[in-house]
């Protein structure tokens, strides 16, 4: 395996930046480092990106490398596959995970499959970025968390950057990966900001974001920060939690999960996907398979209610995993 690491971020990144700017800087760096890299998607150019991620890049790199596409998800995702086969390193942006379903044929039947189906001849060095998740009152066709579905598919690498460092650092190793990588950016994270800690970022391992001894909280993407808040609240009551950021949803790195649960003997999984058949179900199964006798209590899951995401603010909030529900689940697990 290659090391899959990024160069340290540049000096000007020391100032506080947003998640959006971190992603933009990662694209800009990749475009400068490798002329085979180009960005393609709906409104990535003149509009500046649906979520303003690529704002200013058209002016910097021109329309050949910042390519506005028609509303043709299947065609431009498949064109990304073909361009990767033809020696380029495309970054394809899909506005939201809901829209990616229009390109699912290309992602599953071609990107994830061609290497194996061709007996190892055709690798696809393609990166697809898309927004995922709820929390912005965008209702049921712009808010779902379907990364768990994609994490079901062999042949893909699925990343969920939850921190500024991962937003800034995951793209380059993803472009170096010879296989297709999907990067899911939670829409609620774009405006979050902080000081970026420069350094290399890998795309194979989960990460421990907080250390505790009493319980393991497992989260990723948009739910990581909720899990961190829940851990703070638990700490004020004397309960210390490990918080694991999955980061890489496929191939899933369960070593840290198993190691942590072996220490804490208790686990709560937080997942913005629907509970049934979700990534949280997979994580739960891995714990049962690898650490069953270490458990002092049943694993709990805090997931999105099994409804299409509604528009009204109070309904949307009620549908999603929230800090109080995570704290309550953790306390039940501790008490049992």
């Amino acid at each position: 395996m290659s090391t899959r690491t990024a160069r340290p971020a540049r000096r000007e990144d020391q100032a506080a930046i947003t998640y959006r700017e971190a992603v933009r800087e990662s694209i800009r760096e990749a475009m400068h480092r490798d002329e085979r890299v180009f960005l393609m998607g709906e409104d990535v150019g003149a509009y500046g990106g649906c979520f303003a991620v690529s704002l200013g890049l058209l002016e910097e790199f021109g329309p050949e490398r910042i390519r506005d596409t028609p509303l043709s998800e299947s065609a431009f995702v498949g064109a990304g596959i073909g361009a990767a086969l033809g020696g380029m390193r495309p970054i394809v942006e899909i506005m939201t995970v809901n829209f990616s379903l229009l390109a699912l044929d290309q992602i599953l039947n071609n990107a994830a499959t061609l290497l194996h189906m061709s007996g190892g001849q055709l690798n696809i060095p393609l990166v697809i970025r898309m927004t995922t998740g709820a929390g912005r009152q965008l209702a049921a066709q712009h808010s779902h968390s379907l990364e768990g579905w994609y994490a079901h598919i062999p042949g893909l690498r699925i990343l969920a950057p939850a921190t500024l460092e991962d937003a800034r650092g995951m793209l380059w190793p993803a472009l170096e990966d010879p296989d297709p990588v999907l990067i899911f950016e939670h829409g609620s994270l774009y405006n979050t900001s902080g000081v970026l800690r420069p350094g290399p970022v890998g795309i194979t391992r989960s990460a421990l974001r907080r250390s505790g001894r009493d319980i393991t909280l497992i989260a990723y993407g948009g739910t990581l920060h909720k899990a961190m808040k829940a851990a703070e609240e638990l700490a004020s009551g004397g309960v210390e939690a490990d918080v694991i950021d999955l980061r890489v949803l496929r191939p899933l790195d369960d070593s840290l999960i198993v190691e942590s649960v072996t220490r804490t003997h208790r686990a709560v999984i937080v997942d913005e996907g629907w509970r049934s058949g979700s990534l949280s179900a997979e994580v739960s199964a891995r714990i049962v398979e690898h650490a069953f006798y270490e458990l002092d209590a049943p694993v709990e899951r805090v997931c999105t209610a099994e409804v299409p995401i509604p528009y009204a603010r109070h309904l949307e909030e009620a549908a999603l995993p929230q800090v109080p529900a995570i704290v309550a689940a953790a306390r039940r697990v501790i008490a049992s």
């Binding site: 299947s74 065609a75 431009f76 995702v77 498949g78 064109a79 990304g80 596959i81 073909g82 361009a83 990767a84 086969l85 033809g86 020696g87 380029m88 495309p90 044929d105 290309q106 039947n109 071609n110 061609l114 189906m117 061709s118 007996g119 001849q121 055709l122």
Partner: peptide, 29 residues
């Protein structure tokens, strides 16, 4: 699913229409 990268033969696509975007991408490259 017959493929031969050395002869630039990209298969072998069994989903009707599924090869067209790949052709567009190869041409784009």
């Amino acid at each position: 699913h017959i493929f031969d990268a050395s002869r630039r033969f990209y298969g072998g696509n069994a989903v009707v229409g599924g090869g067209l975007p790949i052709a567009v991408g190869l041409a784009l490259a």
